[in-house]
Amino acid sequence: MERAVAIEVNRLSKAYGTHQAVSDLSFHVYAGEIFGLLGPNGAGKSTTLRTLITLLHPTSGTASIFGHDTVREADTVRRLIGYVPQERAIDRFLTGREHLQLLSALYHLTKEEAAQRINELLKLVDLEAHADRPAKTYSGGMKRKLDIACGLLPDPKVLFLDEPTLGLDVQSRLRIWEYVRMLKARGLTVVMTTNYLDEADQLCDRLAIIDGGRIKALGSPTELKVALGGDIVSLTIKETDRIPGLESALAGQPTIKTVRATGNGLDIRVESPEKALPIILETANRLGCGIEFIEYHRPRLDDVFIAHTGRRITDTAEQPVE
C-alpha cells in the first residue's frame, strides 16, 4: 500500500550570501510518522525546519506540506502546521492560559472554541494547576510543556519541534518523549530536529542525518544500523604511538570492513567478530601493541553518524545550556 506523503522536499537549497546553509536537499515525510532531522549545530537542520514552516524562502527548490507550497501557499500551510520553537519562546509576563488565548485569536478561533480547546490542552500537558500563573514562575520542563501546548493549539496536521529536549533534565526529557509518542498515536505527523543520538534512535520512525547542509543518510534507525553491516570492535591500546601502524596493518584484512583511529585506540567494523577477533589480536600481538581494553557491539546510531560524516556528533555540537 502506498503511504500518504505529508511533506515533500525537492532539491531545496538556502544560501545566506556566500554561505550555503542547505544544499540540494530532497526527502519526504510520511503522514503519521515521527521524522527526525539529526545533525550537529550549524548542520542546516533549523534552516530546513524554518523553510518548512514558511519562515524562510528557499534560494532554490521547493517544499510542500500536504501538497501546498510553503512559499506560494504559505497561508494555507500555516493553517496545517503547529510549531514549537527551540527554547523559551515564552512571554514571561503572560500566564500559560494567556499564551494559549493569544494564539487562539491568531488562529481565529471563537471564544467558546478557544476556551474548550485551551482546557483540553492544559489537561493534556498537565499544566491545569499552573495555568493562571505568569510563565516566569515556571520550571524549564513546564515551559517546554507550555511550548508544546502552544504548538498543538491550532490542532495541526503536522507538528514541528525544534530541539524539543535541549537543555532539559532526564525526567523532563522522558516526559516529552512520551508526549511525542502519544501525539503520533493520535495520528499527528511529527517532524523534529535533534542533536541527541539517543533521542533520534528512541523516538524517530525515520531520520535524515544532516551535516554541512547535505543529507548524509536517510532511513529508519534500524535500517541505518543494519546498512552499516557487521559489528564494531573497539580497542584501547597502551602504546598510542603504535596505533597508526596497527591501523594500516589491519586495513584490508579479510572480514575487516573499515578501521578508524580514535584518541586511544581503534574502532574496527567487522563482518563477523568470530573470524575477525583472532586476526585483530594476532596482528596487535605481532606489532607489540598491548591491548588494554576490548569490546564489541552491534552498530549504534553514533556509529552510523560517524560512518556517514567522519566524525562524532559531539565534535561540533554545543553543550546544552542551563
Binding site: 514552516i53 510549531y83 520553537p85 523559551r88 519562546a89 491568531l106
Partner: peptide, 16 residues
C-alpha cells in the same frame, strides 16, 4: 527568544 517566529508561523497578516 523565538516568540516572533511563533507568531509568524500562525496564519496572520504580517502587518498585525
Amino acid at each position: 527568544n523565538g516568540f516572533l517566529e511563533r507568531l509568524m508561523s500562525a496564519p496572520i497578516r504580517r502587518s498585525s
